[in-house]
Design a protein around this nucleic acid. Structure first.
Length: 198
DNA sequence: GTTAAGATCTGCT
DNA sequence: GCAGATCTTAACG
């Protein structure tokens, strides 16, 4: 499988957030391979975006957001969940794309094992905290190069150019609620929430 | 040293 | 649909 290289992530963040839809996220462990198709992303801008962790400058937590593009930025939230971001823009920019949901492809039994046995297919990876649990992603991957196993992004050669994408406001934030920076595959059943209809 | 808020999820009503 | 869990981070004194 062809992995996404660094040039993919150097582009404008909204272009990257849009282009990540339909691509593969892969995770290799001793127990086997887990993979999924990205169906929902959100962009967090380096400037003019008070909801972005980098808005008030670099800190110990968000330092990886200022690192090289194509690397991971992972943080812990609400006492129980990890969130997985892909750093974009040239080194030092301070912006990232949050991966909010994927559609399970490989290793579904393994996902169920991690998320809880009777877990419904549509509930395995339909949210940022859920997909991190299903993919066994934690802070040890903060700053990880996403071209390298055991966690990497790969090109979907069967991707459809006519794939229907919708842009909506972001979810779960209290500032900059009206900025349309969330990208979803229209009608996909693995989104974290049903897309907003007008 | 202390405190308040958070890019969420689950379970209960 | 809504409240509670739970703990790290950052800001403030």
């Amino acid at each position: 499988m062809q992995r996404l290289d660094q040039s993919f992530f150097k582009k404008d963040i909204q272009t990257v957030a849009r282009a990540l839809l339909g691509q593969y996220l892969c995770r290799e462990t001793e127990d086997g391979l887990v993979s999924g198709i990205i169906v929902e992303t959100e962009a967090y801008l380096s400037s003019g975006d008070p909801a972005c962790h980098a808005h008030r400058g670099m800190t110990a937590r968000n330092a990886k957001m200022f690192g090289p593009p194509g690397h991971a930025y992972i943080y812990y939230i609400y006492g129980s969940h990890y969130c997985f971001n892909v750093v974009t823009g040239p080194t030092g920019t301070g912006e990232a794309v949050l991966i909010r949901a994927v559609e399970p492809v490989d290793g579904i039994d393994l996902m169920r094992h991690r998320r809880g046995a009777g877990c419904k297919l549509t509930n395995l990876t339909s949210g940022p905290g859920k997909l991190c649990q299903a993919f066994a992603i934690d802070r040890s991957f903060d700053g990880h190069d996403l071209q390298m196993p055991p966690l990497y992004l790969a090109m979907n050669i069967e991707i459809n150019d006519k794939m229907a994408v919708r842009v909506t406001p972001r979810i779960g934030i209290s500032s900059a609620r009206d900025m349309p920076l969330r990208f979803v595959l229209v009608g996909n059943q693995y989104l974290s929430r049903r897309e907003c209809l007008e």
